[in-house]
Design a protein around this nucleic acid. Structure first.
Lengths: 119, 119
DNA sequence: CGGCATCCTACCTGATACTG
DNA sequence: CAGTATCAGGTAGGATGCCG
């Protein structure tokens, strides 16, 4: 889930490096990643708050996908050494640069209802 | 996945119908769906041609995701009754309306290399 | 050519318990 | 609070092989 451009299986694999959409999808590849980024766009957020805003996610996956986004340089993780612990997640510059992608998704989701109502 | 207005646990469920991004992700949910749409944007395409352009996809998944996109009204499937069979996939109006989303992904994938080179 | 059918694995969730 | 660990169960995805 966190590897990509390395183990390219020999040969006719046009994939990840040459197609910009694939590169984007590699970073966004994870059930909750786009939503996590979307939630972090307006403001940084703590772990449980994020979990609360993403109904359906398990803490296991939320942790894993946050780690993955952190590795990809999309999300920053700031730990305050206090009791009780306080961990704040925020978007990096690179993460914020994804805003147009999420924006386009948001716009489509809104228009879809107007143009093609779900009965 | 199709209902939620009923079991909304008192307010805190931002879920599928109220969050436009979630709605979009529901339609694009599938490893190859965005890429399929991306490939169909310029022109309609036959099954094996599509398969050839998406290295790494299995025909099982390609079939399944095309069916799913068809059900969601994103993709049109046209069968020519000839020998050998000729099946052409194209984007519906609704499918073409996703262009800005794919466009944003493409742009980000391109800029990502310039702004944050992959070593 | 464009699929199904089958089998099998990897991933995701849910629940619960435990740590610093 | 913010995780990690574990197990069960479900679904998505991958690798074949057969068929009209």
């Amino acid at each position: 889930m966190s590897d990509d451009s390395k183990d390219t299986p020999s040969g006719a694999f046009i994939g990840y490096e040459t197609c910009p959409v694939r590169r984007t999808l590699t970073v966004l590849n994870g059930k909750w990643k786009p939503l996590i980024i979307y939630e972090l766009l307006p403001a940084p957020c703590r772990f449980n708050e994020l979990k609360r805003r993403l109904p359906g996610v398990s803490q296991r996956l939320l942790t894993a996908q946050l780690r993955s986004l952190e590795e990809d340089g999309i999300v920053d993780r700031k730990v305050m050494e206090v009791v009780p612990p306080h961990v704040e997640y925020s978007l990096s510059e690179k993460g914020r640069s994804l805003q147009p992608v999420l924006q386009a998704m948001e716009t489509w989701g809104e228009n879809e209802v107007k143009n093609f109502p779900i009965s």
